[in-house]
């Protein structure tokens, strides 16, 4: 059941991205920036958590989930450490993902070469 929900919610989030790319001239880079920012904002006003409750990975795997993750971390740390938490919470929560992206990204880039098309 979880898996089906993840499929549907994740699929729908991607459809929004597709409509944005086809209907406007936004590049993938713009879409990614838009999604991470929207995720953060929706999370901030309390609308993203319900989506995560329904879709689970379907809401956390899309890049909106990354924005949500950053905001959740910031809010937790603000609760715990006050103003300092504004600066520490986001990257603490996203540390795993960011480190993985840098480490695996570097590794793969060093090992492999682009294939001529």
């Amino acid at each position: 059941m979880d898996v089906i929900n993840a499929f549907i919610v994740g699929g729908l989030i991607c459809v929004i991205g597709q409509i944005l790319m086809d209907a406007t001239k936004l590049t993938p880079a713009h879409v990614l920036v838009f999604f991470v920012t929207s995720g953060a904002v929706l999370s901030g006003i309390g609308l993203y958590q319900p989506l995560v409750d329904i879709g689970k990975a379907g809401a956390t795997i899309p890049l909106t989930g990354f924005g949500h993750n950053l905001v959740t971390g910031v809010i937790q740390d603000v609760d715990e450490y006050g103003l300092l938490g504004v600066f520490t919470g986001g990257l603490r929560a996203a540390a795993g993902g960011i480190t993985a992206a840098i480490v695996f990204g570097y590794l793969m880039a060093v090992i492999f070469n682009p294939k001529p098309k």
Partner: peptide, 29 residues
């Protein structure tokens, strides 16, 4: 094939890191 279907998930974020990094290897590390 997938367009945003593979851009928006976090795997697409990884793709956006590896693809330029790999391609610019000849410009140094």
């Amino acid at each position: 094939f997938a367009g945003a279907g593979s851009v928006v998930p976090i795997t697409g974020f990884a793709n956006s890191i590896v693809s330029p990094a790999m391609e610019f290897k000849r410009e140094g590390y």
